[in-house]
Write a protein that binds this DNA or RNA. Structure first.
Lengths: 346, 346
DNA sequence: TGCACACATGTTAGCGATAAAGTGAAGCTT
DNA sequence: AAGCTTCACTTTATCGCTAACATGTGTGCA
């Protein structure tokens, strides 16, 4: 009786402890704990009880090594703070909750070198799949993803070459669509406001699609402004003020995200500007926040939760399928414009 | 030459592959890759090159099992979508980035049974430490945490018994402080608006502290309203409208978070209510969003990033310290009121 | 009675890394 | 020149678990 089995026990518990406590082999304990193979009801109960009594928590590290199976899905996203990725995560969770898989999140802050590091770190845990935002990655990252030999789903964006599967929307098309809607409403002097971040490829693509569609109608961006850091809402205000002062003939403001769009809207309302009569406004994303604004900002839903769900489903299906399969799935969702109250020329 | 070493290789790479490719033992490769022990410059380079060439990614599962060391820190939080936890994460990352430790996030959605499951799952990976939100946990969760034999830091809240270390603010005191400030400003007909969630213990404690401090001055809450789900901004509007209609004599509204507070503020401004003359407003948290509002909402900073930093530092210190040590640290930060523009009786 | 056959359990051999101990050659010391 | 170190590796024995196979044991059927 060197040490009692219950609390003062310091050495971490192993299967052996449970097996000794319940008088069966380690293998049987393992079987019980994983609900696998034939075990009689009697021993099952005995083992379960012993296990609970001791407070045993299986060591997945050993389990994963032995079984060559890791029920983790690496999810690599640029940021948690802008509302869009938490919603993707919700979608992912929704689907994975019904599988043995578990998401593990890594955040890159839009920096390729961090992405590389995070990816390396995650792959070293040999996950069952990777869900990663964007189609743009460093060569090293791409090489790792290809070499990993596991399902890879690139999300959010479909404008480009995917490594394996891909789920998202075409941001270029989204930009075009918005441009068309704005032109159709009769606006002609259009300003663009967005993030400075050269590494936010999706914002860039939206901008490209936007200007392209305008150009097709012979319209050119009247002014543009980019910001970096700080409160997006406040920046939206400031930028809007600056732009309207600099280019008073502006009659429409297209924001690269809803948050700065909301700031702009608040500014316009403060100034007594007639929205959407004098100036129209539109953002991008369809964030929940907009519901509480004094006026509904025009925006475009990016299908975030659905992207998460679809991506998770691909991983789940592929890692369940016994007879291998899948690969190269490509799902392009179509975002819809919500015109709200700020995109209606009288 | 059954299979070429480069891309068409399907079997996952191991140390052995690298060791064969570079002509040294697996052990030496391991040393090189971990920068440990004596290795000559020449072999080091040879190994590194072979490793890169093959695209080898070490298997941490095997490494962790062999070394009994896992450089993961489990971070368990209720939600990602309310702005507060992402900021805590930022603080945690800031500190852990300079250590070999890596955070792994689990989300509980404020449900104790999910907390239990997530915790079990994470502990089964034998992390080096746990950072977990709140002091209220199921008995089973507490038992697991105690039995794990690793540093545990409970964050956000200091009103209660901690299992091990604890970093946060006293929400009860925060509620009291706000009540005192409101009374001092001369308001007497105070309404409270918050979440329905009975499991948000911190909101509850704030409420308790708040009413307690009011009671001490003989003041009672004039009205209260709770919500659930939906856009917080929109809910703030609706609830404010409802309350002001129901209890017109209200002269102050205390919101349990800034988001609904912002909704209330927008509503009041829409209605042409004199803020803070006729009605004063205050929220809680100090979210960045507030900077862009037409008027600065009074609030109280919850020290979120600092909490994250302090918690991470405790874990980092303890898992670095060679001669063991630490345990039971307790850090109570003091939130400060930011009066903004909505808590000034003329 | 004997044999196949499902059930309930036990045994053996790794999984891919690392800790710890071992080895041989060169360099110093006195 | 024997003895002690140091250096630069290699060898061996796990880590805690699971896959795969081996072993009993009672049943049903011919």
């Amino acid at each position: 009786m060197t040490d009692r089995p219950t609390p003062p026990n310091r050495r971490p518990l192993t299967l052996r402890d449970v097996s000794e406590a319940s008088g069966v082999s380690e293998m049987t304990v393992s079987r019980v704990l994983r609900n696998r193979g034939d075990v009689s009801q009697a021993t099952r109960e005995r083992v379960l009880e012993a296990s609970k009594e001791l407070g045993y928590v299986p060591n997945k590290i050993a389990g994963a090594l032995a079984s060559q199976r890791v029920n983790l899905v690496a999810v690599i996203i640029p940021s948690l703070s802008n509302m869009v990725f938490p919603e993707v995560m919700t979608g992912i969770n929704e689907v994975l909750d019904e599988t043995p898989l578990q998401p593990v999140v890594g955040v890159t802050n839009y920096k390729p070198e961090r992405e590389e590091k995070v990816l390396y770190e995650m792959l070293s845990w040999r996950p069952s799949g990777v869900i990663i935002a964007g189609l743009e990655h460093s060569d090293a990252s791409k090489a790792m993803l290809k070499a990993a030999g596991i399902p890879v789903v690139e999300i959010m964006d479909t404008d480009g070459e995917a490594i394996d599967a891909c789920v998202g929307i075409s941001h270029r098309r989204a930009g075009r669509k918005m441009a068309q809607a704005i032109l159709k409403a009769g606006y002609r002097n259009i300003g663009f406001l967005g993030t400075k971040m050269p590494l936010d490829h999706r914002a860039r693509k939206r901008f490209e699609g936007f200007t392209e569609a305008l150009a097709k109608e012979g319209v050119e961006i009247a002014d543009r402004e980019f910001y970096e850091g700080g409160s997006a809402l406040a920046k939206g205000r400031e930028m809007t003020e600056a732009m309207l002062k600099r280019t008073p003939e502006i009659d429409f403001l297209y924001y690269s995200n809803d948050m700065i769009g909301a700031g702009g809207l608040l500014y316009c309302l403060d100034q007594g500007i007639d929205v959407p009569g004098q100036i129209g406004l539109a953002g991008f994303n369809g964030v929940e926040l907009l519901d509480g604004l004094p006026r509904q900002l025009a925006t475009m839903d990016a299908c975030r939760a659905e992207i998460g769900r679809a991506a998770a489903r691909i991983i789940a299906d592929r890692s369940a399928e016994d007879g291998e399969a899948g690969g190269g799935e490509r799902i392009e969702l179509s975002p819809k414009i919500a015109a709200g109250d700020t995109l209606k020329r009288r």
